[in-house]
Design a protein around this nucleic acid. Sequence first.
DNA 1: GCATTGACGAAGG
DNA 2: CCCTTCGCCAATG
Length: 133
Amino acid sequence: MMVVFYLLNMKKKLLEETPRTTTKEYSFFADVYDVVRQVPKGRVTSYGAIANFLGTKLSARMVGWAMNAAHNARPKVPAQRVVNRNGMLTGKHHFETETKMEELLKNDGIVVKNDTIVDFKIKFWDPAKELGL
DNA sequence: GCATTGACGAAGG
DNA sequence: CCCTTCGCCAATG
């Protein structure tokens, strides 16, 4: 009984760590993580920009969903560098604490005011532009 | 199976 | 400007 319980938990954990779409052979999640890991310290990008870069321009929501599972991804994903198109920290509630995301950004050298990134346009890092198409 | 739900974003009023 | 609607699609009940 204990063994079964243990194995079920293990399977669940593995699935969380390596999420993948059911309809496509590649992992959309993994692609998202790879892009986010390219974001330089001190710069930020948006869900839509990542979606656009991956070719699924209209599926920014899926990027957000991917970030939801990013906690278990390795190597680590700097999730704090992904904000919405207006530079707002809409995902802050999904971090360990209410202020964690802002603290991480501050550590990156980014100024946050009213849950919004100061000079967002200057800090913005577009994968399609920086990594090429 | 079907309806609902999002860490989104564009478009229209 | 602010608000609503809609497209998007995996996950969940």
